[in-house]
Each structure stands twice: as structure tokens, then as C-alpha cells.
């Protein structure tokens, strides 16, 4: 499992971890019941503070992606497909937002943008 942290990103480090682990789960790279590295080991490997990885795991747990058993560790939760679909949809939305921003910055109209999308989608 790869987790790559960018220190120059606007996104807080904990969020980068959350998003990447979610992606690993959505893509099936991490499967249900699979153990995750311990909070402390992950902090050591990524060279970040413990509190940051702890926050990332708390967030993942709140979002239902992992389960943490005190004293044992964290495991990939059984994800309902709806949640997975929802998560993937939000990734798609994010990418489209980026494309829209870029389109606006060069004055591309919505119509043109949709046209490009339709062509690409059919490919």
C-alpha cells in the first residue's frame, strides 16, 4: 500500500492520509478485515507526528471505513457498497470541479465542456 504525503499541499496531512486510504479501500487494494499499520508505526514510516495519524484513523473510523479495536489495532471495515459508491462519486465530483475551474479560467463555455465530456465518455 502506497501513502504519499505532500508537505507543500494545501490539504492537511491527516486528510491526505484519509483520502489515500479511502482510495485504497474503494479500489479493492485493501480488503475487508485487512489490518492497517498501527498509528505509531505509520507515523514513524511517514515521518509525521503521532497525533496526525491518530486523527486520520479517527476520521476513517467515523466515516465507517475502518474499525479500531483497542489494544489490537485497526482493520478495514465491511463497507456497504452504497457508501463505496458514494465515496467514488465524490471523487468524480472533485475531479470535475477541477476541470470546470480550469475551463472557466480559459473561458470555455459549459456547452463546450459538455461536448468534450461526451466525446471522451464515448471513447
Amino acid at each position: 500500500m502506497d501513502i504519499l504525503i505532500s508537505n507543500s499541499s494545501d490539504k492537511p496531512i491527516y486528510l491526505q492520509i484519509v483520502n489515500q486510504i479511502k482510495r485504497h479501500i474503494s479500489s479493492g487494494n485493501l480488503i475487508e478485515g485487512e489490518p492497517l499499520p498501527s498509528i505509531r508505526n505509520l507515523a514513524k514510516e511517514l515521518e509525521i507526528s503521532v497525533i496526525t495519524t491518530k486523527r486520520a484513523y479517527d476520521e476513517l473510523e467515523n466515516d465507517g471505513f475502518i474499525n479500531t479495536i483497542p489494544g489490537k489495532g485497526s482493520y478495514v471495515a465491511s463497507i456497504n457498497t452504497e457508501l463505496l459508491q458514494e465515496n467514488k462519486k465524490s471523487i468524480v465530483e472533485g475531479k470535475i470541479c477541477e476541470a470546470i475551474l480550469l475551463a472557466k479560467s480559459i473561458g470555455l463555455s459549459l456547452k463546450d465542456l459538455i461536448k468534450i465530456m461526451s466525446i471522451l465518455y464515448e471513447e
Binding site: S38, R40, N41, A43, K44, E47, V50
Partner: peptide, 8 residues
């Protein structure tokens, strides 16, 4: 220090 902090 990082390896020390693996111990909670």
C-alpha cells in the same frame, strides 16, 4: 525519537 515513540 520516532522509534522511541512507537511505544505508546
Amino acid at each position: 525519537l520516532r522509534s522511541i515513540m512507537e511505544d505508546e
